[in-house]
C-alpha cells in the first residue's frame, strides 16, 4: 500500500516537473534549431541537426549585449534600492507604534489594487519634466516605487518572525537599538533579505510594460523590450529570439544560486522555545 502511494506521489511530481520545465526545454530546443529546419521539420521533439548560429548572431551582431547590460544595471539597482528601503519600512512597521500606522499599512495594500496600465500616462507626464523619461535611473525609480509596498510587507513578516525579546536582551546586554538591529536582527534577517532581493530582481528583470513606454532610445532599452525587435515586418525570427531569451535566463539563475542559501529558513531555530 505504502509503495503504491509512494509511486503515485512520484508520478505527480514528475508530471509537475514536466509541466514546469517543458517551456524551458522548448525555448532551448528552438534556439538551437537551424532556421531552415524550423518550418520544414514541423513539430518534432528534437531537430535532426543543431546550430549555435542564433547565439552567435545575438551576441556578435545584434544590439542585445547592450540591452543585457541595461537590464543588469536596472534590475540590480532596483533590487538594491527596494531591499534597503523595505528593510527600513518593515522594521518600523514591525517594532514601533506610531500615529497613522494602520492607515499607512492599508494605504500600501491599496496601491497594489490598481492595474499598472492605468498610471502609464500620468507617470510619463510626471517624469518627463524632470528628465527621467528615457533614462535607466527613471526606470529604477519607477520599478522601486511599484515593488516597494509588497517588499515592505514581505520584510515586515520576516521581522515579525524574530522574537522581540532578542532585541530586548541585546539592549540589556549593552546595545543601543541600532546596534541591536545590526548585530542581532540583521544576521537573522538574511533569509528575508535574500527573498526580497530575489523577488524584486526577477520582477525588474522581466518587466516589459514600463520599459516599453518610458524608453525610446536604442541604447537604453532593456532586453525584454529588445526581444520585440526580433519581431520584424516580414515575420518573427524565432531562432534568434529564443537564443536571446535563453541568454536572458542566465543572470537570474546565477542570482538565485547565489542567494538560495539565505532563502532557506530555520536560521532562528533555537532562539526561543518553539
Amino acid at each position: 500500500m505504502k509503495s503504491i502511494t509512494g509511486a503515485a506521489l512520484w508520478l505527480v511530481r514528475l508530471a509537475y516537473l514536466a509541466f514546469a520545465l517543458f517551456p524551458l526545454f522548448w525555448l532551448i530546443r528552438i534556439s538551437l534549431t537551424p532556421d531552415d529546419l524550423l518550418y520544414s521539420e514541423g513539430t518534432t521533439i528534437w531537430p535532426s541537426s543543431l546550430t549555435l548560429a542564433n547565439f552567435a548572431y545575438v551576441i556578435e551582431e545584434s544590439p542585445f549585449p547592450v540591452f543585457f547590460g541595461n537590464t543588469v544595471i536596472v534590475s540590480l539597482g532596483t533590487a538594491a534600492a527596494v531591499t534597503v528601503l523595505a528593510a527600513g519600512i518593515g522594521y518600523a512597521f514591525s517594532r514601533f507604534e506610531f500615529a497613522g500606522k494602520r492607515t499607512l499599512m492599508v494605504f500600501l495594500v491599496i496601491t497594489q489594487l490598481f492595474p499598472l496600465v492605468m498610471v502609464i500616462t500620468p507617470l510619463y507626464q510626471l517624469l518627463a519634466p524632470i528628465g527621467l523619461v528615457n533614462t535607466r535611473i527613471g526606470l529604477i525609480v519607477v520599478f522601486t516605487a511599484f515593488n516597494l509596498p509588497f517588499a515592505a510587507f514581505l520584510m515586515h513578516s520576516f521581522y515579525e518572525g524574530i522574537p522581540r525579546e532578542l532585541e530586548q536582551a541585546a539592549m540589556i546586554d549593552g546595545c543601543t537599538r541600532f546596534q541591536a538591529l545590526i548585530r542581532i536582527i540583521l544576521p537573522l534577517m538574511l533569509p528575508g533579505i535574500g527573498a526580497t532581493l530575489g523577488f524584486v530582481f526577477t520582477a525588474a528583470w522581466s518587466e516589459l510594460l514600463f520599459s516599453l513606454m518610458l524608453i525610446t532610445s536604442e541604447t537604453k532599452k532593456t532586453f525584454a523590450v529588445g526581444l520585440l525587435s526580433f519581431v520584424g515586418k516580414s515575420g518573427v525570427d524565432w531562432g534568434q529570439m529564443m537564443a536571446a531569451a535563453t541568454l536572458a535566463l542566465i543572470p537570474p539563475a546565477i542570482f538565485f544560486t547565489f542567494i538560495q542559501k539565505y532563502l532557506v529558513g530555520g536560521l532562528t531555530a533555537g532562539a526561543v522555545k518553539a
Binding site: P163, E165, L166, Q168, A169, M171, A269, G270, V272, K273
Partner: peptide, 28 residues
Amino acid sequence: PRERNISMVFQNYALYPHMTVRQNQGFG
C-alpha cells in the same frame, strides 16, 4: 536598559541563535 547595569532572563530564553554558547555569554 543598557545603562541600568541589570541583566534579565526571559521566559523564552531569547538566546542569540547565530552565536555559540560562548559568544552568547560573552556578548554583553
